[in-house]
Nucleic acid binder design. Structure first.
Lengths: 206, 206
DNA sequence: CCTCAACCTGACCATACGGTCAGAAAAAGA
DNA sequence: TCTTTTTCTGACCGTATGGTCAGGTTGAGG
């Protein structure tokens, strides 16, 4: 019996298989939700047997939690990168574009979080109230300062951040709807880039 | 054996129980997703026995489909109500406010749709490509005309509609996240009303 | 090559869940 | 009231699913 824990250094095989499992789990959980995903689906997507999954993770829930916490940093990185010393409008626009880029490059991650939050974030509410809130409050203060200094138009900083989340993640989370409405032969993300440039340009112009 | 179908007029008891079931199903499906909800949960929420549910609906899926199609009209009503003959900015702002009001008054319906679309709309993709697309295209044409007549600033009409969906539904679908970030003692929907007024004011001003 | 730990699997288990059915209870109709 | 139709239920069934386990296989270190 092995007890795969972060204590002992991971072997080559462990690193490979844990990676494979998390990749497969991301695929399945993001498409089906936690409850809708089955260990068999994940095992098949990973090319491993179900008992082998449970050799590396104690339970289905543990895989899910590991995925979520492992991705949270990536998810918040763009906001972290917003530089208080930078040019206000450019910083905010850059943040928006990074988030939009993530909707293009990481739609599965976006849907994973969306699924979790939709269900009331049963496995994440702790992180939302601590890590997330602290980061957002910090950056909101920065935006408020910019706003009060007249370097961007006055806006509620928290809701500005929410609006960036909503507008960018919408194109990942509601992809099928967007494509159904736009019809074939259009690139939703490209168009969104243009549109959101205009939107935030007009919103923030001092 | 009864065969509850729209053919025969519904009895008093049928109307009451079908209503109760759909209300309970909305509660459970919106909170747990289709796969996460169980017939037992719905039965308990409705105060009926599980076999009795299946006396009124042939399957779990039938309940879900009935819910979705029954709600789609309500869901699109605000967009339908946008009047081509009205004052452009006022019409768009009114649409946005109606949608925001729905996030406050009908968050369960919002989450039900969000869940469905997130999973790729397996039980709704037909409606998305037909009924929804046609309505949106029609209203997008109206907005485009306003835009070209210089009555509002130039915007991509489809993405303007998407932005209204994203910004308003965000407050229903991601409610826990919004509340976790804002902290207690604030009314997210109230603040959103103010913020979105500003946002669309600046976006649309000719 | 040998040994030991790490890795993997087929078979199995308990439970949850969607759904069925025979027939009882309650309404409706005559 | 008696009869017929509608409404409702306890008991049951087959399957899917998360998880376990005894033991086999593979790989690493000596």
């Amino acid at each position: 019996m092995a007890e795969i824990t972060p204590q002992r250094p991971r072997t080559r095989i462990q690193r490979r298989n844990i990676g494979t499992i998390l990749e497969a789990a991301l695929e399945v959980f993001s498409a089906q939700g936690f409850r809708g995903a089955t260990l068999d689906q994940i095992a098949q997507a990973a090319g491993l047997s179900k008992p082998n999954l449970l050799y590396y993770f104690p339970s289905k829930e543990a895989i899910h939690v590991e995925l979520l916490s492992g991705l949270l940093d990536d998810w918040l990185a763009p906001l972290r990168a917003m530089d208080p010393a930078g040019e206000p409008k450019a910083e905010i626009m850059a943040y928006m574009h990074r988030k939009l880029e993530m909707s293009r490059e990481m739609p599965r991650e976006s849907r994973l979080f969306a699924n979790e939050v939709l269900q009331g974030a049963p496995r994440m509410s702790a992180l939302l109230g601590s890590e997330l809130k602290e980061l957002v409050d910090e950056k909101a203060a920065v935006i408020r300062a910019w706003s009060e200094a007249g370097r961007i138009a006055p806006v509620d900083p928290h809701h500005l951040i929410f609006s960036i989340w909503a507008l960018t993640q919408h194109y990942a989370d509601f992809d099928v709807q967007v494509r159904a409405v736009l019809g074939p032969g259009r690139d939703p993300l490209d168009e969104a880039g243009q549109f959101l440039d205009t939107l935030f340009e007009r919103l923030l112009a001092p």
